[in-house]
Lab assay of single mutants.
Amino acid sequence: DTCAICRVQVMDACLRCQAENKQEDCVVVWGECNHSFHNCCMSLWVKQNNRCPLCQ
């Protein structure tokens, strides 16, 4: 699966965690819609949006 926000494989660290060298801290979360995201990506997304980027 791919993170619906950053488009990186969810089993890999997101771009932000890769840049900050925090790959082991990058975890996967699932929305109520069952789409998967990196927690970092979702945390930033929900500050500006309240819907899944794929379900909009």
Results as ranks from 00 to 15, higher is better:
D1R: 01
D1L: 00
D1W: 00
D1E: 08
D1N: 07
D1Y: 05
T2Y: 14
T2L: 10
C3M: 04
C3Y: 00
A4E: 15
A4W: 05
A4Y: 10
A4I: 01
A4L: 03
A4T: 14
A4P: 14
A4K: 12
I5L: 13
I5M: 09
I5C: 06
I5Q: 05
I5H: 10
C6L: 00
C6P: 00
C6G: 00
C6W: 02
C6F: 00
C6T: 01
C6M: 00
C6E: 03
C6S: 02
R7E: 15
R7Q: 12
R7M: 11
R7A: 14
R7S: 15
R7H: 12
V8L: 13
V8D: 12
V8F: 08
V8S: 12
V8P: 04
Q9D: 01
Q9K: 05
Q9T: 10
Q9R: 13
Q9S: 10
Q9E: 12
Q9W: 04
Q9Y: 03
Q9F: 05
Q9M: 10
V10W: 02
V10L: 12
V10G: 06
V10I: 10
V10C: 11
V10R: 09
V10S: 08
M11H: 14
M11K: 15
M11R: 07
M11P: 10
D12V: 09
D12K: 04
D12E: 12
D12N: 07
D12F: 01
D12I: 05
D12S: 08
D12W: 06
D12T: 08
D12G: 14
A13C: 06
A13D: 05
A13V: 10
A13Y: 03
A13T: 08
A13Q: 15
A13E: 07
C14H: 01
C14I: 00
C14A: 02
C14E: 05
C14S: 04
C14N: 03
C14K: 03
C14F: 00
L15E: 05
L15P: 07
L15K: 01
L15H: 07
L15C: 10
L15M: 12
R16S: 13
R16A: 10
R16K: 15
C17E: 02
C17F: 00
C17H: 08
C17Y: 00
C17R: 03
C17D: 06
Q18V: 10
Q18K: 09
Q18N: 08
Q18Y: 06
Q18D: 08
Q18C: 09
Q18S: 10
A19L: 08
A19M: 06
A19Q: 11
A19N: 14
A19V: 11
A19E: 02
A19S: 08
A19I: 10
A19T: 12
E20F: 05
E20L: 10
E20A: 11
E20P: 03
E20H: 04
N21A: 09
N21Q: 13
N21Y: 02
N21T: 11
N21G: 11
N21R: 07
N21I: 02
K22D: 07
K22F: 08
K22N: 07
K22Y: 08
K22E: 06
K22P: 11
K22H: 06
K22S: 09
Q23L: 08
Q23A: 13
Q23K: 12
Q23F: 05
Q23T: 14
Q23C: 07
Q23R: 10
E24K: 13
E24L: 04
E24T: 10
E24I: 06
E24D: 12
E24Y: 05
E24Q: 09
E24P: 08
E24N: 09
D25N: 06
D25K: 15
D25A: 05
D25R: 04
D25E: 13
D25Q: 10
C26P: 15
C26K: 14
C26E: 14
C26W: 03
C26S: 11
C26R: 10
C26L: 04
V27E: 00
V27Q: 05
V27K: 07
V27R: 14
V27M: 08
V27Y: 15
V27W: 08
V28E: 11
V28Q: 14
V28D: 10
V28G: 07
V28P: 04
V28L: 10
V29H: 11
V29E: 13
V29W: 08
V29A: 11
V29M: 11
V29S: 13
V29L: 08
V29D: 15
W30V: 14
W30F: 07
W30M: 15
W30Q: 15
W30N: 14
G31M: 08
G31Q: 11
G31A: 08
G31H: 11
G31T: 10
G31W: 04
G31S: 12
E32V: 06
E32S: 07
E32T: 09
E32Y: 04
E32G: 12
E32C: 06
E32I: 04
C33T: 00
C33P: 03
C33V: 01
C33R: 00
C33D: 01
C33S: 01
C33G: 02
N34K: 15
N34C: 05
N34E: 11
N34I: 09
N34V: 04
H35C: 05
H35N: 02
H35T: 00
H35W: 00
H35R: 04
H35Q: 01
S36G: 12
S36V: 13
S36E: 06
S36P: 14
S36N: 14
S36A: 13
S36Y: 07
F37Y: 10
F37I: 04
F37S: 03
F37E: 01
F37Q: 04
H38A: 01
H38L: 00
H38G: 01
H38Y: 01
H38V: 01
N39Y: 04
N39M: 02
N39E: 11
N39D: 13
N39A: 06
C40Q: 02
C40K: 09
C40V: 02
C40P: 01
C40H: 15
C40M: 01
C41Y: 04
C41E: 06
C41R: 01
C41P: 01
C41K: 03
C41H: 04
C41W: 00
C41L: 00
M42N: 12
M42P: 01
M42S: 07
M42K: 12
M42I: 05
M42C: 05
S43H: 10
S43D: 10
S43F: 01
S43T: 07
S43L: 05
L44G: 10
L44M: 12
L44Q: 05
L44N: 09
L44V: 12
L44E: 07
W45K: 12
W45M: 13
W45D: 15
V46R: 13
V46I: 10
V46M: 11
V46W: 10
V46E: 14
V46S: 08
V46C: 08
K47R: 09
K47V: 05
K47E: 12
K47F: 02
K47L: 04
K47W: 06
K47Y: 05
Q48Y: 13
Q48E: 10
Q48L: 12
Q48H: 09
Q48W: 03
Q48I: 15
Q48G: 09
N49L: 04
N49S: 12
N49H: 15
N49G: 14
N49Y: 07
N49D: 13
N49C: 06
N49Q: 11
N49W: 06
N50P: 11
N50M: 07
N50K: 15
N50A: 12
N50Y: 10
N50C: 02
N50G: 09
R51Q: 07
R51P: 13
R51A: 12
R51W: 12
R51S: 14
R51E: 10
R51F: 11
R51K: 05
C52E: 03
C52A: 02
C52Q: 01
C52M: 03
C52Y: 00
C52D: 00
C52R: 02
P53L: 07
P53K: 03
P53M: 09
P53S: 04
P53E: 04
P53Y: 07
L54G: 12
C55A: 02
C55G: 02
C55V: 03
C55W: 03
C55F: 03
C55S: 02
C55R: 03
C55Y: 03
Q56K: 14
Q56G: 11
Q56R: 11
